[in-house]
Design a binder for these strands. Structure first.
Length: 430
RNA sequence: GCCCAGGUAGUGUAGUGGCCUAUCAUGAUUGCCUGUCACGCAAUCGACUCGGAUUCGAAUUCCGACCUGGGCGCCA
């Protein structure tokens, strides 16, 4: 019966472990094998005079990163890693690894990201990389848990859609029988429809697709989005939910992932403190204008240089609120007293944008006007507009980039490191 | 899409016209070694992205292609 390596202690006497051959040190009459599974590393010590011929033959034939099953006595040894070692009675090679390996799992030499992604299955064998995905899993658990506790209904919306209803970003066209279809850029319109369906609080964690030809460390063509929509809420209420769920997610990672954080050499993991500052767009561009050369005026988008300058000034997570209506989508609700600005917000990490949201326009005629004002044709928004004609509660929501959340949480230099199989302009395999 | 920097053994690199039969580390193969823990020692193996040009001579210069990294733009 195989046991995880972290459970191997001198007290258990005898153990069978399975895992990868991490390293081999053959001293002649004595050889040391380090066996690694998800839970840790165990030293297997082979005194060649005291073990069977079969064990010696297997030990000689095995290569690094092969999969093995080894059983034997566990001894307490001061000098061994973890204070214990296994003396094998059986040594079975389950799956022999080819040599040489496409990348160095033991991290003696560095590897470029491109090489790592080409051999992702080997890359993830490295504890510091596996830690990223264990932490990502914990973060996703915390998010799901939060939404369930707060009474959100988990929904799943189609990723194959008929038309480019939102405008803005480029979409991926796909062949859908004899029709033209696209991969969806966002669950936006569907989660709003669920407000008309009366579900009141919904969330979805799922893939989104953007066909932009960007080439940066923070953009992917397939990303994971955490989306919520809440009826009878305004932008301030969903901002409160956003900072709350973000803090709770950090807290959960802090509480449950200390081993993984240690594997990544993260010693200063900090849970952000809410509430986050609400910085009006007007003040944000003033800060940017003082710090960067490029002129920036009301109605301009905030570019990456400005984003970094403001981030440095703020020092932690913050919201940019009260955006010009002109640079937000048609469904963002303008302020009644000043329609040049709207009830939209971005949640920012000092490095980059994490989330956008807004109170939405829920009045059908106002929405038609706003669509037309953006130069779009309301007739092509029929399926989206229809729910607004039969009773639509006021509502607000946001979308949070899961990959960027993990990237900024763990200080990863490239968003690709937070995604198992990233999809960018150049990478479609594996 | 624009700009910049690159492409050298399995991996990561050094090498800016002849000193390159190409450096170092790691790795792989073989041998020696009973307490290693990046074990040590010895031998061996293994590379200049592709095509064209300049030159007596190109890893090195030039042109083109392909690929990679980064910045910018774009990004409901």
């Amino acid at each position: 019966m195989r046991i995880p390596i972290q459970s191997v202690t001198p007290e258990i006497g005898h153990a069978e472990v399975c895992g990868f051959v991490h390293e081999v040190r053959d001293l002649g009459g004595l050889a040391f094998f380090l066996i690694r599974d998800r839970t840790g590393i165990l030293q297997v010590t082979i005194p060649k005079k005291k073990v069977s011929e079969a064990v010696i033959a297997a030990a000689k034939a095995v290569s690094r990163e092969s999969v093995v099953r080894i059983s034997g006595q566990i001894k307490a040894v001061e000098k061994a890693p973890g204070g214990r070692e296994l003396i094998p009675e059986t040594f079975e090679i389950i799956s022999l690894a080819e040599t040489p390996l496409p990348l160095d799992v033991s991290e003696k030499v560095s590897v470029e990201l491109d090489t790592r992604l080409d051999g992702r299955f080997l890359d993830v064998r490295r504890p510091r990389v596996a830690a990223v995905f264990a932490i990502r899993s914990a973060a996703m658990h915390a998010l799901n848990d939060y939404f369930h506790r707060e009474g959100f209904i988990s929904i799943t919306t189609p990723k194959i859609v008929a038309a480019a209803t939102e405008g803005g970003t480029e979409l991926f066209p796909i062949a859908y029988f004899d029709k033209e279809a696209y991969l969806n850029q966002s669950p936006q319109l569907f989660k709003q429809m669920m407000m008309a369906a009366g579900l009141e609080k919904v969330y979805e964690i799922g893939p989104i697709f953007r066909a932009e030809e960007h080439n940066t460390t923070k953009h992917l063509n397939e990303a994971t989005s955490i989306d919520i929509e809440v009826s009878y809420a305004d932008h301030t209420e969903v901002m409160r939910i956003l900072e709350d769920v973000l803090v709770k997610t950090y807290e959960y990672v802090d509480k449950t992932c200390s081993d993984h954080l240690a594997n990544m050499d993260i010693t200063d993991f900090a849970v952000p403190k809410g509430p986050f500052p609400r910085l009006p767009y007007c003040e944000a561009i003033e800060i940017a204008a003082k710090k960067i050369d490029e002129p920036i005026k009301f109605g301009d988008d905030i570019g990456s240089a400005a984003e970094r300058a403001i981030g440095a000034e703020m020092g932690g997570h913050y919201f940019i609120v009260d955006w010009p209506s002109g640079i937000r989508p048609y469904y963002a609700m303008p302020y009644e007293n000043d329609p040049t600005i709207c009830k939209a917000f971005d949640l920012m990490h000092p490095r980059m944008e994490l989330s956008s949201g807004a109170q939405r326009v829920h009045n059908h005629d106002q929405l038609v006007q706003q669509i037309a004002k953006k130069g779009l044709n309301p007739e092509s928004f029929d399926f989206y507009l229809r729910p607004f004609r039969y009773g639509m509660p006021p509502h607000a929501g946001w979308g949070l980039g899961a990959d960027r959340l993990i990237m900024t949480m763990l200080g990863l230099p490239n968003v690709r490191e937070a995604v198992l199989f990233p999809r960018d302009m150049h990478r479609l395999v594996p």
